[in-house]
C-alpha cells in the first residue's frame, strides 16, 4: 500500500536541511515581496538538488501575480516542469490558475500544457513523442523522465492487477533489455511478479492495493476518529 505514492515522490526528495530556511521564510512572510529573489533562487536550487516545494513555488507565483513586471518566464517554466513531475498531484493546474493567460500563450508554456494534457488523460505514447520533440525545454530539469515514469506506474497500479508488458512499455517509454532490467528491479524492490502468457507474452502482476483491489479497501466508515471518541470521554469517566 502506498507504493505508488512513495514512488512518485522518491524522485523529488523532501526539502533538505539547507532549504529549511526558505521554507521558514515563506511561513513567516507569505505576503512579503522582498523574499521574491530568495524564492527564485530556491526554484533553481530545487531543480539542481531534485527537491520540491509546492508552497514556496506557489508563493513565488503569487508575488508574480501581484507584480507582473517582476515575472521571469524562465523561472515560471521551471516551476511548471517541477509541477508536472509532481503528478498525480494537481500542482500543474494549481500553478496555471495563477499565471496570466497572455503568458500562457508563449510557445514553451503551450508545449508544457500539451504535455500535461497527455499525462492527465494517460496518453503516454503521445506524451513521450511530444517530450522527445521538446527536449530543449525539459532537459534543464534533471529527473524529469523518472518522475513521469513514476507517475505512469502509479496510474497503472491503481488500474491494473495484471498489465500486459506492451502496455507497461508504452507508458514508461522503455523497451527490450532495458525494460527487462526495469521489471527485474521492481520484482526485487516493489513486489512485482511476472506471469508468462502463451498467446501474447509477458504479463506483469502489480502489487495489490485498495485501488486495484477494491476488497482491500478498509471501510473507513467502520472506524471512529479519536476526536469523536473524546466527545464521550467525560461521560464515560
Amino acid at each position: 500500500m502506498g507504493r505508488e505514492i512513495t514512488n512518485t515522490t522518491s524522485n523529488q526528495k523532501p526539502q533538505s536541511e539547507m532549504s529549511y530556511t526558505v521554507e521558514q521564510l515563506v511561513a513567516v512572510n507569505p505576503y512579503n515581496p522582498d523574499i521574491l529573489p530568495d524564492l527564485e533562487n530556491y526554484v533553481n536550487e530545487q531543480v539542481s538538488s531534485q527537491t520540491y516545494s509546492l508552497n514556496a513555488n506557489l508563493c513565488l507565483l503569487r508575488l508574480y501575480q501581484f507584480e507582473p513586471e517582476r515575472m521571469s518566464t524562465q523561472i515560471v517554466a521551471r516551476i511548471l516542469i517541477k509541477a508536472l513531475m509532481a503528478m498525480p498531484a494537481p500542482d500543474f493546474s494549481l500553478c496555471l490558475f495563477l499565471i496570466p493567460e497572455r503568458v500562457q500563450m508563449e510557445e514553451q508554456f503551450k508545449t508544457l500544457i500539451v504535455l500535461s494534457h497527455y499525462l492527465e488523460t494517460a496518453r503516454f505514447r503521445q506524451f513521450w513523442d511530444e517530450a522527445a520533440k521538446s527536449r530543449h525545454i525539459l532537459e534543464v530539469v534533471p529527473g524529469f523522465e523518472q518522475a513521469v515514469q513514476a507517475y505512469a506506474i502509479h496510474v497503472l497500479s491503481i488500474t491494473y492487477q495484471k498489465v500486459p508488458r506492451s502496455v507497461l512499455a508504452e507508458a514508461i517509454n522503455i523497451e527490450g533489455l532495458a525494460l527487462d532490467k526495469f521489471i527485474e528491479h521492481h520484482v526485487t524492490n516493489s513486489g512485482w511478479a511476472i506471469e508468462k502468457n502463451q498467446s501474447k507474452g509477458q504479463l506483469i502482476l502489480l502489487p495489490r492495493n485498495e485501488f486495484n483491489s477494491p476488497e482491500l479497501k478498509k471501510s473507513s466508515a467502520d472506524g471512529i476518529p479519536l476526536e469523536h471518541i473524546t466527545r464521550i470521554l467525560p461521560i464515560l469517566g
Binding site: G2, I5, P88, A89, A122, I158, K162, V163
Partner: peptide, 27 residues
C-alpha cells in the same frame, strides 16, 4: 484517465478515491 481523475491527493499527500465505480483490469 477514469482512475486518475477519480483519485485525488489530499492535504497530507495521500491518494484518496472519489470513485463511484470500483474496477480493475486483469490483462
Amino acid at each position: 484517465t477514469y482512475k486518475h481523475k477519480m483519485h485525488s491527493v489530499d492535504a497530507d499527500g495521500k491518494i484518496v478515491s472519489n470513485s463511484d465505480i470500483n474496477f480493475y483490469i486483469d490483462d
